[in-house]
Amino acid sequence: MNLILLLMAFCVGMAMSIQAAVNTQLAASIGANSVVAALVSFACGTIVLLGVAVSRGGLGGVFAALAAQPPWKFAGGFLGAAFVFGTVFLAPRIGLLSLIVLVIAGQLLTSMAIDHFGLINMAVRKVSSVKMLGACVVALGVAITLFGDRIVASMGR
């Protein structure tokens, strides 16, 4: 795999954590309104993406192609909104670290299923036993992150 692409993926992960923290602070500063904070986040992102789309050749012909798409293909927007709202709502309640390790665990398990079975018309990429072991290690890391302090404390009693 291309090292640049791997580095980009790592940076996307960093951006997710920073985004959750920034949006949480925005929500807190506007009366703990998680929905409005998520809306503002999406509006800002929409403006940036619109600018990039226009600078890359505009939107000519795209609207006709969009009208021909089945409704399920628009679920990404709803899922993105749920993600942003979920991070804004949950980060102050369960903490950013707990939120992110659970997000990673959810992404890992769902991504493995999508790859392995070729769900949602994605290419089939069989999950090897080595990758399954890696996922188990990550799941163990999630459990330790979430419950490790309690486990250590209970062993000291």
Score class of each variant (00 low, 15 high):
F83L: 15
H116T: 07
L59F: 15
N2E: 10
P70Q: 08
G31H: 01
G60I: 05
G148V: 03
F83Q: 13
T110K: 09
L66Q: 09
A9T: 08
L79S: 13
I100A: 05
G134M: 07
I120W: 12
T110G: 08
A38W: 11
M14T: 06
V52M: 13
Q19V: 10
A82E: 02
I30L: 03
G57Q: 02
D115A: 08
L5N: 09
P71E: 06
G57E: 00
L3Q: 08
V36C: 02
S128I: 02
G61C: 11
G86I: 13
G118T: 08
A75M: 14
G13H: 01
G13Y: 00
A38D: 09
P70C: 08
A113F: 11
N2H: 12
I104Y: 02
A67C: 02
V101F: 06
Q69V: 11
F74Y: 15
F42Q: 15
L102D: 01
C136W: 11
I30V: 00
A105P: 00
A37M: 07
L97Y: 02
A105L: 12
I151A: 06
C11P: 03
V127R: 04
M132D: 00
R56L: 11
S98Y: 02
A113E: 07
F10I: 13
I104D: 03
C11E: 07
S129G: 14
A82N: 04
S129C: 10
L133R: 04
G148Q: 06
V12N: 06
M16H: 12
A53G: 02
I94P: 04
C136N: 08
V48S: 06
